[in-house]
Amino acid sequence: MAFSDDDQDATFEQIYRCYPVSFIEKSNLEKGDKIIMPPSALDRLASLQIDYPMLFQLSNPSSGKFTHCGVLEFVSDEGMIYIPYWMMENMLLQEGDTVCVRNTSLAKGTYVKLQPHTKDFLDITNPKAILETSLRGYSCLTTGDTIMVAYNSKKYYIDIVETKPSPAVSIIETDCEVDFAAPLDYKEPEKPAPCALSKRKRSEVEDDEPPTKVPQFSPFTGSGRRLDGKPSSSTQSAAQTSSPNLKQKQSNDETKGSDSKSLNTTSRRHSGKLVFGSNAAKPDSQRSLPKASENSTKQESSEKEEAPKFQAFTGKKYSLNS
């Protein structure tokens, strides 16, 4: 083992052989990310200007895998360190493999997204509270790592999917938002069959259709009738409304009749003369004839009159004296 010949403000970097913490009967360290380093490392770190708490980057030179951790004690034998076994698995390390240790400084985490390997972890009564308690044994989190959470004699493995504001963050004395992704063994529910889906849509359409309209009672919508048998004014108006063509035809016929009568009358008049009296519609031959008989007078009066008219006081006269 040899330290780098850097200045007082240089970084600490050293290569050690790694072994699981179970070798020194400290299996409780498997619930966190703390490592055991030799006393010579403490002497070297004390002479450097480094940030506290001490954080380190562990890397496997052969595979290129790396992670971050904290330190618990400086009591290991020289030239070797003891680390949790889950960290050795993440870096693809075996017992006695070499690992490079370098001190580092990490930003405080503000957001962490986790993904459990099995959905059994979400079946815990309060998984966030259990996770918060378990993370107290951790100093930092690195994107891509798989950590282990022990609860009720059962181990749950969780992937670190994302960390903010950087790929590796410190979680010591910080408020960090935690989010969960769907477990790796989670399966989406199967989609319903097309026939079942069509039946469901049909039932939804039937539910959306408005109910059929029920006919409402409308009072006083019938036709009225008079007691004397004559047609009512509403019936006449309805008849006039329903047969406008018939009314128009009658008016046209009346107009034609009046026109023909006026033409006959004017044809018998003499041009340039004014004719007064009932003899205006007669020819000259009839005006010169005396009223010889009562029958001819009645015939002429029947031709003149278009329709019988009511005349008052036209009956026979009787005397009270015998």
Rank of each mutant, 00 (worst) to 15 (best):
T133E: 13
R226V: 00
G315W: 14
S237V: 07
K317T: 15
V75C: 06
A2H: 05
T67H: 01
D77P: 04
S218L: 10
V275Y: 04
F220P: 04
C69I: 12
S47M: 05
P194S: 11
V71M: 06
V169W: 01
S234K: 07
R202P: 04
F180M: 13
D7A: 04
V112S: 02
Q236H: 04
D51T: 09
M91P: 04
Q115M: 14
E132F: 14
V112L: 08
V275N: 06
K282R: 10
E132L: 14
D51E: 13
I158M: 11
S288A: 08
D185A: 02
Y85G: 03
E132K: 09
T265D: 08
K316D: 11
M91N: 05
C140H: 00
M80F: 12
E30A: 02
Q240A: 06
T297S: 05
K273D: 07
C195E: 15
I81C: 08
P53M: 02
A182L: 09
P215G: 03
Q14M: 07
Y186R: 00
V21D: 01
M91L: 14
I36A: 01
F66N: 10
F220M: 13
V21F: 00
G70R: 01
K199F: 15
S105R: 08
I83R: 00
S40P: 00
N321P: 08
E206N: 14
L227N: 06
M1H: 09
S234L: 09
M91A: 04
S319W: 14
I36C: 03
V71C: 09
S233G: 10
Y156H: 01
S251C: 08
N245W: 07
P116F: 08
L42E: 09
S293C: 12
K26M: 12
P215C: 00
G64P: 01
D185L: 05
Q49E: 13
P127C: 00
L246A: 06
D145H: 00
G272M: 12
I83P: 01
T235K: 05
F23R: 06
L92T: 09
L184G: 01
E254W: 12
I50G: 04
L246H: 09
Y52A: 03
A280G: 03
T212V: 15
T297L: 12
P165D: 08
G277S: 05
S302L: 14
D175M: 02
K298I: 14
A292L: 13
D284E: 12
I172C: 00
K191R: 12
K187I: 15
F3L: 10
A281C: 11
S22F: 04
K65T: 01
S47N: 05
L92H: 04
Q8V: 06
P38W: 03
P308V: 09
S262N: 07
L131V: 15
T110D: 12
C140Y: 00
S153C: 08
R44M: 10
M1T: 10
G277K: 07
S260D: 07
A280Q: 03
C176I: 15
F56V: 13
Q57C: 06
A41C: 05
T133I: 11
C69Y: 02
A196M: 14
F310I: 14
Q286E: 14
D284W: 04
T146M: 13
S319A: 07
